[in-house]
Amino acid sequence: MFRDQGRQPHQLLYRPVRTGRPLLARACMPVLLGAIILTTATGCSSSSGTKAGNASARTGSGSAAPGGTITIFAAASLKESFTTLGQDFERAYPRTTVKFNFGASSALATQINAGAPADVFASAAVKNMTQVTDKGAAANPSAFASNSMEIAVPPGNPAGVTSLADLGRSSLKVALCQAQVPCGSTALTVFKNAELTVKPVTLEQDVKSVLTKVELNEVDAGIVYVSDVQAAGAKVTGIVIPASLNSSTTYPIAVLTKAPNPGAAAAFVRYVLSTEGQAVLSADGFAKPN
């Protein structure tokens, strides 16, 4: 009796102590490794280049109507207007499907140079397009729009921002884009023009992330494009930056040299540069290219 009582819990518990922990550790390890791998993986590029696209690219050499799937890598600030343009393009050329990968122009340029399968690159700055053309991944870009900066504040403007100079207040939480992203470098030019020192609380990966932080009221102000303030509608309030201090960036677009579907890609570029395409962009707050 006594022996049984003494042994049972001991046996029961002794075994799990020896085998239980390694088992647990083993269970944790893949999760840990997976997590590490996941966290080191960077931006994702959307899939593209279907067989249909390849086929049509080979047969349709310019004169035939474009078809198949095309993948457009476009600056984050183009999200709304290019989504509209993509739908219009698909309507104009019913055999086509347009897929987008929106992100920071600098990140997209890195992805393209690393061999991401894309057909068209639309950058928010000449610099990032040059990154791609320098590597021979694209040629002959055309400027299709330009954009200048605006201050975005949460609705109701809780911090009472009235001018660019307010962004220099140390108590103000300001979000900017990273310096290598076009919206970041253009914002820095604006500050230089205004001889203003701004200490941001965060440097976001792209302009839409800045806008989100403003929309969520996590920051008091952010520097975004004029077109972003318009796209955000009532979710943010825009404060105009005087033209004398403002700076603009030019948007180039190009078909990539390794485009899986160059025929349709060229058609899309033509569409963006066409009167219809330009109308969509200007309605969304973009200016004509400088």
């Binding site: 080191t40 290598q180 965060t202």
Partner: peptide, 30 residues
Amino acid sequence: GEFGATITFAGNFPGKTQTLTLKVYDALQD
């Protein structure tokens, strides 16, 4: 190794919230 939650919640600013993983992502761009 944390990246996603950090950049979403804490943002990305050198010296304050930019950890090594965020710096890797940042550096990869240029």
